[in-house]
């Protein structure tokens, strides 16, 4: 099915959460620490498209935490609200770490330079000068995005297999209506922000030719295999 290329938020089938269940979860949360989740401290908004199909584009709300100065891990939701669907995840690494990856791995990773410099990637609610301090770093990084839930084609549930996603690398790729929708909702102008970010530099060595799938499409396929189970056969057969 074709993507619809408007911001979608499909209704998930199922009964409303029972009051008892909701109360229970409040109680449960009160006992628990939520360690790794507490490291999530930043909301970034951008767009992804499918590794094999640029014409299917998805607004992606990233909730990111640093593991160190060169590595961020992000949960991706289709909306920044309470009922946001968790549709995927992204890993963001410094140029230095990216360059340590084997060549066969590099294809999964996309550059961030254009997303930042075009103004399209932004940090909602954070003043321009403050967000630009961080975006100066992001512009030099590479990201690996996997989506598990194809909300753009209206899937009410996460169906099928994971998809490798790519991101914007030049003008003319992003649908105007998707851009305008976000600009209106957040009262921002990508064009104006682009001017503000003109000074920002991308990776020191330039964008690696193997990144962005080397300009090809990437498509995931499912393969049935024998589970390896030497240990078990020895013990149980």
């Amino acid at each position: 099915m074709e993507g619809v290329n408007v911001s979608t938020h499909p209704e998930i089938p199922g009964e409303p959460t029972q009051t008892g269940t909701a109360l229970l979860e409040k109680a449960t949360a009160a006992f628990q620490g939520f360690g790794p989740v507490n490291k999530i401290h930043q909301h970034l908004c951008a767009f992804h498209f499918y590794g094999h199909d640029m014409t299917r584009q998805v607004e992606a709300h990233h909730f990111c935490g640093h593991l160190n100065d060169e590595f961020r891990q992000c949960l991706i939701y289709d909306s920044p609200d309470d009922d946001g669907r968790l549709i995927g995840l992204e890993y963001i690494v410094s140029e230095e770490l990216f360059l340590t990856l084997p060549d066969d791995e590099k294809k999964f990773w996309h550059s961030h330079e254009f997303e930042v410099k075009s103004g399209v990637l932004f940090v909602p609610g954070v003043p321009g000068p403050v967000q630009r301090q961080d975006l100066e770093k992001v512009a030099k990084t590479y990201g690996k995005v996997i989506h598990f839930w194809q909300v753009d084609k209206g899937d009410k549930l996460p169906l099928g297999i994971p998809q490798v996603m790519m991101a914007l690398t030049r003008d003319g790729q992003l649908y105007e209506n998707l851009a305008q929708d976000v600009e209106k909702r957040y009262n921002i102008s990508f064009e104006k922000e682009r001017e503000n970010r003109a000074y920002i530099k991308g990776p020191a060595h330039g964008i690696h030719p193997m990144a962005n799938a080397a300009g090809k499409g990437l498509q995931t396929v499912l393969r049935e295999v024998d589970c390896k189970h030497e240990k078990s056969t020895r013990v149980f057969v």
Binding site: K107, I161, T220
Partner: peptide
């Protein structure tokens, strides 16, 4: 019969609306 699944990634042409990358 103890079958499992794995994901492979194949290189294809990308459907585009502007040059990539």
């Amino acid at each position: 019969k103890d079958k499992g699944f794995c994901i492979d990634v194949e290189t294809t042409e990308m459907k585009t609306r502007a040059p990539f990358p």
